[in-house]
Nucleic acid binder design. Structure first.
Length: 489
RNA sequence: GGCGACGUGGCCGAGCGGUUAGGCACGGGUCUGCAAAACCCUCUACGGGAGUUCGAAUCUCCCCGUCGCCUCCA
């Protein structure tokens, strides 16, 4: 059963195969770096991290490009509104690049903690101004854009005579016009649905570059077209991003690519993949609603909706327990549930490594393994895959107690599957610290002392040790023949 | 107004015509010096109505409700 992915372009699942095997080109819209990374960023990053990991696991050589948007963009395509990064820079009285650098670093820090692998290439918009200008120049040359007072706009009316505008989002221009909130008056655009490729900069504008049309800065959509095509060519295999980017951002990207390269662009990417949003009490997180939660707040617990902090893997696990195309409703209750479930799974994983082989197998590892990969192949159904692992937790205990058995060969495959899927593909990591070995021997010593105390019926000492360890976040698990322990903080 | 989703047991969440999804929480029990853990048991749901079918959470229609996009947004 091959990997199938839901393609927004066709609105159905399609068997994935790259254009030029074994190479896969994947571009994902990264963050605009002007504020703290939040749960939405985490979900997008983790979703495509898993896809990245899985494609590599399947043997593809993946070039994964995820951009950093460090040019502030206007708050709208209208000719008004303030650049978000500039606004932040002005408020804090620092250079725009300081804002970009700071939030890029915070983004990296948060995503690293969540086990998100760095992409192969992480280009910045400001680092690719020439490529963007060149693309705009070609679009103008082909007649799909026009210049007005030092700004350049894509001429949607003209474009749609040759290409289908709205192919990704299912919009048509008439409907857009009917429902547009665009205000009449201030626009120099020919039609309300035209969008900016290049904007003229006022002399006071902090970030501006020379261009054939005078000093200015690029429009929001052009950077992704220019950078994706620069590193991956046209068309490339996979373009990803949040569901909220489908329109207008990705629709505009497709239009720019075709306006520049014509039919060769072939919808720019063959697979358009979108992760659904994170909601808080059923509503999308947004600053205007004041309900957004940053990744850091989840770690520290410093948020009104949280009573404590949670480790990064708890959040990663919560996200993975939902299918990426479903909305995920965030709450502390859900997060706590995910955290406990994650610990349970990791405990099982650690115990699995202590299982000893036998002369025959009492169940089929192969059949179970196939079900796990069938789930992953079914549009990356991580939730279903994880459920299959939970179903095995009791089997592991029975294996360890020699109530059921596996041959050395089957056991190896069984252990391999746990490692490959949970650790390598889903990117979960056991709750360990770098000081793990030291901790382990220290705790082992305490366990021994406590055991002696218990045998001597010195329960006061035994309980003192246990309670102290509990308060430090280390839980003792007394089995009849031994004591295991686990960290839960 | 247009486009698109979704409503599953206390909570999160798979599900794409016939199986107990699964996790977390709750309750009872076994075990334990006590507890935790582990194990066993209990809780068995699909917004409402009509239809198709031997059979529907899963398909069709209507209704109700929620949400996203159409401004920046992962």
């Amino acid at each position: 059963m091959p990997l199938e992915l839901y393609n927004t372009l066709s609105r159905k699942k399609e068997v994935f195969s790259p254009l030029h095997p074994p190479y896969v080109g994947m571009y994902v819209c990264g963050p605009t770096v002007y504020s703290d990374p939040h749960l939405g960023h985490a979900r997008a990053a983790i979703t495509f991290d898993v896809l990245f990991r899985y494609l590599k696991y399947l043997g593809y050589q993946v070039r994964y490009v995820r951009n950093i948007t460090d040019v502030g963009h206007l708050e709208g395509d209208a000719d008004e509104g303030e650049d978000k990064i500039l606004k932040k820079a002005r408020l804090e009285q620092v250079e725009p690049i300081e804002i970009a650098q700071r939030y890029t670093a915070l983004y990296h820090k948060a995503m690293d903690a969540l086990g998100v692998l760095r992409p192969s290439i992480e280009p910045t918009a400001t680092g690719h101004i020439p490529q963007q200008i060149e693309m705009i120049r070609q679009i103008l040359e082909r007649g799909y854009a026009y210049e007005v007072n030092g700004s350049v706009y894509l001429d949607v009316e003209c474009y749609r005579r040759d290409f289908p505008y709205g192919i990704l989002s299912g919009r048509n221009v008439e409907e857009l016009l009917a429902g547009s909130r665009e205000l009449e008056g201030q626009s120099e655009k020919r039609h309300p649905w035209d969008f900016a490729l290049w904007k003229r900069a006022e002399p006071t504008h902090l970030m501006q570059w020379d261009s054939p049309w005078g000093r200015g800065y690029p429009g929001w959509h052009i950077e992704c077209s220019a950078m994706s095509i620069n590193y991956l060519g046209v068309p490339f295999d996979i373009h990803g991003g949040g569901l909220d980017l489908v329109f207008p951002h990705h629709e505009a990207e497709i239009a720019q690519a075709h306006a520049c390269f014509g039919k060769e662009a072939a919808f720019q990417a063959r697979f358009w993949i979108h992760n659904n949003l994170v909601t808080i009490e059923g509503q999308k997180m947004s600053k205007s609603l004041g309900n957004f939660i940053t990744v850091e707040q989840v770690f520290t617990g410093k948020h009104p909706k949280l009573s404590r902090g949670y480790p990064p893997m708890a959040l990663r696990f919560l996200i993975l327990q939902a299918h990426y195309r479903s909305t995920l409703d965030f709450s502390e209750e859900a997060l706590l549930g995910a955290f406990r479930g994650y610990l349970r799974l990791m405990t099982a994983y650690q115990r699995l490594m202590e299982v000893r082989p036998y002369t025959y197998s009492s169940f089929s590892v192969e059949a179970w393994r196939e079900r796990v990969f069938a789930a992953l192949n079914d549009d990356l159904n991580t939730a279903a895959a994880i459920a299959l692992f939970f179903e095995q937790t009791e089997e592991i205990i029975r294996l360890r107690r020699q109530e059921i058995y596996l041959t050395a060969e089957d056991l190896a495959l069984y252990q391999l599957t746990w490692k490959e899927v949970l650790i390598d593909i889903l990117g979960l990591s056991p709750p360990q610290s770098i000081e793990w070995e030291k901790w382990a021997s220290l705790i082992g010593l305490l366990i021994q002392i406590r055991r002696d105390a218990r045998q001597a019926k010195n329960y006061a000492l035994a309980d003192l040790i246990r309670d102290k360890m509990t308060s430090l976040g280390i839980k003792f698990l007394d089995f009849p023949d031994e004591t295991l322990w686990e960290m839960y903080e």
